[in-house]
């Protein structure tokens, strides 16, 4: 098996006295689509935020292609400088639940900003790549629109284009369809399917179980800051071992019916 792109060992995160992540071990292989499921408050978002160095953590290590993400070395406890963190984040894409598009920039400029400023591309080149990706997510005719002029599904597709245009080694997706009207979910998940087919490495939190089943390579179930079950989707979702996962899946099914 090839070296994992992302490797998490003993990740522990506390907010005050509550332990939100409690010794998480997780590897994501190159090209793998790893789906994270779990009840509200189980620590899924916090996990992604640790991986993208958006929050510090208390113990454990996270490495991307062998490089420790948030700290100067595993267990050093010394936070990297802002510059070093930015360089690492540039190689990790993130798509947010609430889109978080830049409201003052057109769809094109939302995608081109990181290319110009972080990647240092010339303006022409950056715009060309932004337009390429916006076309890929089906927004060729919406390049000049501001986020406020786009539907939720369109905004989220801009969010995906913004992240993948940076050609990240790893893409993090946090419940990217849960703020959308049901009829807009499909268009966004189709884009993600396309990326998966092209070999994009993804760590994805979702409550879309049918998507997890047919597009996910592996599923982990998080419970109270721990990974409680993990395996291929068919196994984990079709044959849940723990009482808690069974209850969780029943609740999700009730909600989506």
């Amino acid at each position: 098996m090839s070296e994992p792109v992302l490797s998490i060992r003993g990740l522990t995160k506390r907010f005050g006295t509550t332990t939100v992540l409690d010794g998480v071990d997780l590897d994501v292989a190159r090209g793998e689509v790893l789906v994270v499921i779990g009840a509200s408050g189980s620590g899924k978002t916090t996990l992604l935020r640790c991986v993208n160095a958006l929050v510090p953590y208390d113990a454990g290590s996270i490495t991307l292609d062998g490089v420790e993400v948030g700290y100067t070395a595993p267990g050093s406890g010394v936070r990297r400088s802002d510059r070093a963190l930015s360089a690492i984040r540039a190689d990790i894409g993130m798509v947010f639940q609430m889109f978080n598009l830049f409201p003052h920039l057109s769809a094109r400029d939302n995608v081109a900003l990181g290319l110009k400023v972080t990647r240092g591309m010339a303006k022409r080149e950056a715009v060309a790549r932004a337009e390429h990706w916006l076309a890929r997510v089906g927004l060729a005719d919406r390049m000049d629109h501001l986020p406020s002029q786009l539907s939720g599904g369109q905004q989220q597709r801009v969010g995906i284009a913004r992240a993948v245009a940076m050609e990240p080694k790893l893409l993090l997706l946090d419940e990217i369809t849960s703020a959308l009207d049901p009829e807009l979910v499909g268009e966004v998940l189709d884009v993600v399917r396309g990326l998966a087919a092209e070999g994009m490495t993804m760590l994805m939190v979702t409550h879309e179980m049918s998507f997890a089943r047919d597009a996910g390579h592996r599923v982990v179930f998080m419970d109270q800051g721990r990974i409680a079950e993990e395996g291929v989707p068919k196994e984990v979702l079709g044959n849940p071992r723990s009482e808690r996962l069974q209850r969780f899946l029943r609740r999700i099914e009730l909600r989506t019916e």
């Binding site: 958006l54 930015s86 984040r89 947010f96 830049f102 409201p103 003052h104 990181g114 400023v117 913004r162």
Partner: peptide
């Protein structure tokens, strides 16, 4: 300015000064 703006700016690898210049201050 919503906290998500700063996070999105971090996520595309902008440095602190660039986050202010291109994302926070214009808004």
């Amino acid at each position: 300015i919503a906290a998500g703006q700063m996070e999105a700016a971090k996520a595309i690898g902008l440095s602190f000064v660039d986050r202010l210049r291109y994302v926070i201050f214009p808004q």
